[in-house]
Computed example of a mutant assay.
Amino acid sequence: MASLLVLYHSRHGNTRQLARHIARGIEQVDGCEAILRTVAEIGDDRQAPHGDPVVTRNDLDQCIGLAMGSPVRFGNMAAPLKQFWDSTSPEWLSGALIGKPACVFTSSSSLHGGQETTLQSMMLPLLHHGMLIVGIPYSEPALHTTQSGGTPYGPSHLSGGEFRHLSSEEAQLAQACGKRLAITALKLR
């Protein structure tokens, strides 16, 4: 079974909802399994706000693809996720992630809260690691009809106001992105 890592940080559970739908998309592809992991809070290398295990170095080495998600923090990824990537020099030096596909996802409490800049900022460490970025093509019908989250840069969720749970388009786009990531990873393996 080929493992794809779904790595996220989520304080209130909104980004975690997207992670779960991306995992469902990954597992729609025969021979693929999603490994859900989170990052530790700053100052505590074992504690995470949700029930998924904290990511390990072995998770990065063993995965054939990676989905990474963060809530929007002033147009950037959350500090605990950034702190994790800042500690990955050994993987960078060994080339552990070179040539593996990756996608990014995010959530925010407002429509103009910086979703696209957050998605782009998360791509930067992945590009430095030599990963190949996978987005959502406009051939996905939900990308044309969404009134909440979802971009060609990656799945997103608008959690403010009445949109506490993922919209049907947000869920569809997250699953489609997970499926596309898994198919790409198998082709590149």
Rank of each mutant, 00 (worst) to 15 (best):
Q172M: 13
S159L: 00
T184F: 07
L66G: 08
Q175G: 04
Q115P: 04
D59A: 10
F163P: 03
L4A: 05
R180G: 03
P152M: 00
S139T: 15
G65R: 09
P125E: 11
L81Y: 11
G65P: 09
L126F: 01
V29D: 08
E169L: 07
Q175C: 04
I183T: 15
F74Q: 08
K187Y: 00
L173E: 09
K100T: 01
G178F: 06
L126R: 02
N58K: 11
G149Y: 07
L158W: 06
E116Q: 06
P137K: 01
K82E: 13
I26F: 10
M68W: 13
P90F: 07
G65Y: 09
S109P: 08
S110K: 01
L5M: 15
G25E: 11
T15V: 03
D61Y: 02
Q120I: 14
F163V: 04
S139I: 13
K82S: 14
D59P: 06
V6M: 12
T184N: 07
R16D: 00
S109H: 04
E91C: 10
T15D: 00
V55L: 09
N76D: 14
L18P: 06
F74V: 10
L119C: 05
A96T: 15
G113F: 11
H9Q: 03
R46D: 07
S148K: 05
M77P: 09
T38Y: 04
T146R: 10
H144S: 13
M77F: 08
G150Q: 05
L66W: 05
H50A: 02
L127S: 06
D45I: 15
P101M: 09
S109I: 05
E27Q: 15
C32S: 02
M1N: 07
S109D: 09
A19L: 08
D44Q: 08
P125L: 12
S167H: 06
V134S: 12
Q120F: 11
L18Q: 09
P49I: 03
P101D: 10
L173V: 08
K100F: 00
I26D: 09
E91M: 13
M122H: 07
S156K: 02
F74T: 10
S108T: 14
G150S: 04
L5G: 14
L158E: 01
S109W: 04
G95T: 03
E33K: 08
V54E: 03
Q172A: 15
E169T: 11
W85A: 14
T145C: 06
P137S: 06
I183E: 15
G160H: 05
H21M: 07
S168P: 00
E170Q: 08
A176D: 13
D45F: 14
